[in-house]
Design a protein around this nucleic acid. Structure first.
Lengths: 130, 130
DNA sequence: TATAGTGTTATAGTTATATAGAACACAGAA
DNA sequence: TTCTGTGTTCTATATAACTATAACACTATA
């Protein structure tokens, strides 16, 4: 059928990690990959780009990529087959009405002049006391 | 009058840092202190507990405390006087209606079953694309 | 079988993070 | 002045995070 059989290989766009953010590189890699799955831009069956390609996309070492993907494997989000590749295994996508609601919330917050960092601090704080 | 003259020394409650969270201890300390100021539980003029007391409250070394407070000094949130103490200098408190709105948002999100980690991932993602 | 594309493991070295412990410096009150 | 409470600096050590590099193992295809 299309070009690869059952599941195409989509080409997710990943950004280089920020090495001065204080957040470990492997965590940033995890977060970016997981976000793609949560937003449904990667779905179960999809294959990730090869680790050596991820290496250059994220601008980190293979070992850092592996550490990140390993964690996502233990979470059940990904699986890997030696000699073949990494695949999305779990459907953790969020429904789009919820995404829309998030968007509206973010717009409001930006309107009152809060920055991202402060917003996240507050959400964490409120979350624990709700 | 009260007990210290102009500005009492309030006793903020800080929690021990989570040493397995992957977030550097000094960042966790920064976040907790800054949150108190943002929520207006510490206001300009207030004095922080002595660093050696913070050491035990957060369960980290003095040097880690100093690193965190140094950062907040460069942000202008705190200042320090040798031999005296650390003081809140900047009013970055958020108005309570905004806090309330955050609370409502968090309640909604919890209702649909998202966890904190996922929520923050999504907010970061949406934030950059709004 | 041979080859290319993939994941996996291992070693060594560097830097960032965090700790422990000690000493020093300043402010304020006795 | 002396003492206590405070912030500050320093050195040494340990661990985690990250990198570079190389080698190895499996899969699929020619």
């Amino acid at each position: 059928m299309d070009d690869k059989g059952n599941n195409e290989r989509r080409r997710p766009k990943f950004k280089k990690v920020d090495k001065h953010s204080g957040i470990p590189a492997y965590v940033q890699v995890m977060n970016q990959v997981k976000t793609e799955v949560i937003l449904g831009r990667l779905v179960p069956g999809d294959q990730l780009p090869p680790v050596r390609e991820l290496e250059t996309m994220f601008d980190v070492n293979v070992n850092t990529i592996l550490k990140a993907l390993d964690k996502l494997k233990s979470e059940g989000v990904l699986s890997s087959e030696q000699g073949v590749g990494y695949f999305v295994t779990s459907n953790i996508a969020i429904e789009s009405p919820i995404i829309d609601e998030l968007g509206e919330f973010v717009r409001k917050i930006k309107n009152v002049g809060l920055d991202l960092y402060t917003t996240i601090l507050l959400i964490e704080e409120v979350w624990k006391n709700e």
